[in-house]
Design a protein around this nucleic acid. Structure first.
Length: 506
RNA sequence: GGCAGGGUAGCUCAGCUGGUUAGAGCACGGCACUCAUAAUGCCGGGGUCGCGGGUUCGAGUCCCGCCCCUGCUACCA
């Protein structure tokens, strides 16, 4: 049994959870569930980034304290993750004392081990008083902040702490060249290699004008105390999480699941920080793509057009998880559309897995009164074992879609198996031994499917598991039971329809 | 602009080092079956493989040019 510590990006406490947030959590959760099935000792970390000027501003607009805004959003995010069946073990919040002290400790470690890595330097730029933040060229139009066109931008200089990121260029180039598995998929790795070719600039580690964040542990030479800038506040959460009193996480993490937009921070800045602090690097960073809606990326505004809670309610959390993980490739962008959702729901869930379960379990009830016969191994068992191998290969390389594909190929194989053996004919002819073989094989196949589908359809998986007469939790079943599912002699039952057709619903 | 990756059936995509009539799933049309959520199985229609050249006995697969799409091009979480 090996440890598997995985994380997702912490979500910014500046708005409600939307499809983009949910997609990442569902994918990471599928991986967590798969690793547990494999017998790993999993620790799954999720959380929220609650500092920064935007949070302070949004809170001010709402007339509440930043801490209250963070608290209310943390509740909303956690409620959403419960609704989706996300099985995280820890929910970190960057405003907690443990995180704040952890950040300061990490910074001190760098000061101690590599004193030259932090230095004071003037940072200058166009400062918008309305935003209380420095603006980049892209955010400036006609010499004014695009969000506050009536205000005047000021050219401001401040002295703050810088981190000597440039010193780690060679280290990072070696890392990405020698360990291609560190950052996946390859498309993202290539981008980072290209970026590194251009050379690295040092980055701010503190800011004078920030108000809402972790105090930087050392003052600048003028004596002023500043606030830790985003990189050194947010990224360390993966490490500080392991130091919470109630955490069983152990550094380093095996996997960071992130969105492709923050690849650079995780593939460049974070490894450099860890190296500077003398800490081991995470084993792997996976940058997933985005779910698009009518060709546009999900964001706060797009979230308003597709309400996440309503989308989940339409077919339920299992179907929602399944659809997104099967429709959107985990290494690239994909599209969300109700048309595709309905197609997949009908073809794959209702007519595919759902109907296979219904016909198999009904025949067990009708012909054997629910007593699952042992029977001999059949070609369906062979196909099941072959599917398991391909499933493991796909899931181990984090190809969630391919993993689901394998499970549904087994569904197709089982339907063909039923058609070819026509159990109804065997029953009429009184060919009982043959009928036992067929029904036993179907029960074992459903057992296998219940485990293979559990990362995608956790609730349905459990229903299926119990329906074939297995006892306990599908989620904690031993993986080796897939070789010879322990259902012979068990009592099966016919559950309610797993995936009702839309017209049946209303 | 530079770098990277793509443009293959209505849709989503496979097609390794060039080689028999270009494949899968979904959708669509017909047939069979009845255990099942009119579900399942079988058969079938459907593609100038972005455009134009070139190399070759032979190119979706290699080379050149062009068109289009996507990503990256650092202080946004």
């Amino acid at each position: 049994m090996s440890r598997f510590f995985l994380t997702t990006a912490i979500d910014y406490a500046n708005g409600d959870p939307h499809l983009g947030h949910a997609y990442e959590k569902m994918g990471a959760d599928a991986i967590a569930r798969y690793r547990r099935l494999q017998g790993d000792d999993v620790w799954f970390l999720i959380g929220m980034d609650e500092h920064g000027q935007k949070v302070a501003q949004t809170a001010a607009e709402q007339g509440i304290a930043p801490a209250d805004l963070a608290e209310s959003l943390a509740q909303r995010f956690q409620a959403m993750w419960r609704r989706l069946g996300i099985t995280h073990d820890q929910f970190i919040r960057t405003t907690t004392d443990a995180h704040r002290s952890g950040v300061q400790e990490l910074i001190e470690r760098i000061f101690e081990r590599n004193p030259d890595d932090f230095y004071e330097r003037a940072y200058s730029g166009w400062y918008c008083v309305g935003c209380e933040a420095f603006k980049q060229d892209a955010e400036i139009a006609d010499g004014h902040c695009v969000l506050h066109p009536t205000r005047t931008l000021e050219w401001v200089e401040e002295t703050n702490w810088f981190f000597r990121l440039s010193r780690y260029q060679q280290f990072l180039q070696d890392l990405h060249r020698d360990q291609p598995e560190f950052l996946q998929p390859d498309s993202r790795r290539n981008e980072i290699l290209g970026l590194l070719e251009q050379g690295l600039e040092d980055i701010s580690a503190s800011r004078a004008r920030l108000t809402w964040g972790v105090p930087f542990p050392r003052p600048v030479s003028s004596g002023e105390r500043q606030i830790t800038y985003v990189w050194f506040d947010a990224l360390p959460n993966y490490w500080t999480a392991t130091r919470f009193p109630d955490s069983r996480a152990e550094w380093p993490a095996q996997l960071h699941v992130i969105g492709k937009d923050i690849t650079r921070f995780h593939a460049v800045i974070w490894p450099a920080m860890l190296e500077a602090a003398g800490l081991p690097l995470p084993e792997r960073v996976w940058a997933h793509g985005f779910v698009q809606y009518r060709g546009e990326r999900f964001s706060k505004s797009a979230g308003a057009r597709l309400d996440l809670a309503e989308a989940i309610d339409r077919f339920g959390p299992d179907a929602f998880r399944y659809f997104l993980l099967r429709e959107v490739p985990w290494d690239n962008d994909g599209n969300f559309s109700w048309e595709r959702f309905e197609e997949r729901y009908t073809a794959e869930l209702a007519d595919g897995l759902g109907n296979l379960a219904a016909r198999s379990l009904t025949m067990l009830a009708k012909y054997r009164d629910g007593a699952v016969p042992a029977g001999n191994a059949t070609e369906l068992d062979q196909q099941g074992l072959a599917a398991i191998e391909r499933y493991v290969a796909a899931m181990d390389r984090l190809d969630l879609r391919a993993g689901a594909d394998v499970a549904w190929e087994l569904v197709t194989a089982a339907n063909l198996f039923v058609q070819q053996h026509a159990p109804w004919s065997l029953a009429k002819a009184g060919r009982n031994a043959e009928l036992d073989n067929v029904l036993g094989a179907l029960a074992r196949c459903l057992y296998r499917l219940s485990l293979l589908t559990s990362p995608f359809l956790p609730d349905t998986s459990q229903v299926l598991f119990e329906a074939v007469g297995a006892s306990g939790e599908a989620a904690s079943a031993r993986w080796d039971t897939l070789l010879d599912p322990p259902v012979g002699g068990a009592r099966s039952s016919v559950p309610a329809i797993l995936f009702p057709k839309p017209e049946t619903v209303s």
